[in-house]
Design a protein around this nucleic acid. Structure first.
Lengths: 214, 214
DNA sequence: GTCGGCGCTGTGAAGGCGCTGAGGACGCCG
DNA sequence: CGGCGTCCTCAGCGCCTTCACAGCGCCGAC
């Protein structure tokens, strides 16, 4: 997230983290651009009014450099041309302040869906079902309760079932990049998920990562 | 476009056609669903209040049938939960009436920009198939389990089938260049691969290196 | 036929990798 | 302030991978 109002940034970060997202915050345009270039993020929430570099310009440069990260733009400007300009700079969605948190979340989910080759609103793999909007997971129609981290991890794995995903990639996307976490944490959480979902749903590919059995 | 108010539908159609879009209009839910299934469209503009089938339900069915066409939803309902519901049903964007034509256009363009993501690559040589993403190898449709090193070696060889590749080159690319490993290690691993894949798939070219039979 | 060198493979050791239980730090709530 | 839940580190353990080594077979040269 690139947002210079510290209070709003902190509130959103807390809210999104509670939903299981890994969130980093940058306070200036240049810092945000740099993070977007190298951070390997799945999406970006971007304020328009920023010190150093406007949100418009930030997106434009990102696109010029062939980065196609989904961008959700936030702005206090609600004029129709402001909105159209933001979108035409390369943003994927545009929300005017003040906005509803519920709507922000739903639009963020829609944006994340769009990046994937398939876009189901409820992810299904075998008898496992995960509903990002309702934050629910069922296994053979029985509800499974997961913590935020467990949920985020399973969510990421279920978006690419059958593919091997490395511990590093999981750390980058499921954990906040800002804090250094040992790769062992991934093993620990895979262990938790196995305990809750069944032993053979998550395969270990030694030396490579993990794979969700299809 | 699926819209039952004839005047709005006609106005939008004219406007979009003037922008160079090819536009068809359906007036009822079932007609819209059918068109979306078979029409081969690039995107859909969809009203929520429709005779026969609501926009929510229409998107839900479309997604359930594995159609991932971008959907821009239009609705007179501006409640935050209405919007969130629409998006969570599988719509990609949501606009409340009355809306600005300029904004509609910009959002439509943003949706169309997001093309279909590219397909993953699978290496194939003879009846050998190697999928880097899934980290799977099959030989005549039978799965073969490989260790990390074996997999990396086969991967490298399969990217240049038929060519002779020296042991030194393999050491440089498949083994960590930093640590000194005896060239014999390559012979050992070629032996492992032969045992798992069949004796005649890897040819030895004495004094030069190895070649993957095509 | 003989000889030297290259490549193959069985054996075994060492260490890496991943799993798990225990427990500390932190935040939240009564 | 104490209890609770979550997150994450740490250390120990067991298994698998990796690789060195050495003996032998095969190939080509003469």
């Amino acid at each position: 997230m690139v947002e210079d109002e510290a209070r709003l940034a902190a509130a959103l970060q807390r809210g999104l983290q509670a939903e299981g997202f890994a969130v980093d915050v940058a306070a200036t345009g240049p810092a945000g651009l740099d993070a977007a270039r190298h951070g390997g993020y799945d999406a970006m929430i971007l304020d328009v009014m920023l010190p150093g570099l406007s949100g418009y310009e930030l997106v434009r440069r990102l696109r010029a450099e062939q980065h196609w990260l989904p961008v959700l733009m936030l702005s206090a400007k609600d004029g129709e041309y402001d909105q159209a300009d933001g979108l035409d700079c390369g943003a994927d969605d545009y929300l005017t302040k003040p906005f509803s948190y519920v709507v922000l979340l739903a639009r963020l989910r829609a944006l994340l869906r769009r990046g994937a080759p398939e876009r189901p609103t409820v992810l299904t793999v075998g008898d496992l079902r995960l509903d990002p909007a309702r934050r629910r997971v069922t296994r053979a129609d029985a509800e499974v309760t997961l913590t935020a981290r467990e949920f985020a991890l399973l969510d990421y794995l279920m978006r690419r079932p059958g593919q091997v995903i490395s511990k590093i990639e999981l750390l980058d996307h499921v954990w906040d990049a800002s804090l250094e976490t040992a790769p062992n944490a991934v093993e620990v959480y895979v262990g938790y998920l196995r305990r809750k979902l069944g032993r053979d749903r998550l395969e270990t590919v030694r030396g490579a990562g993990y794979r969700l059995a299809t």
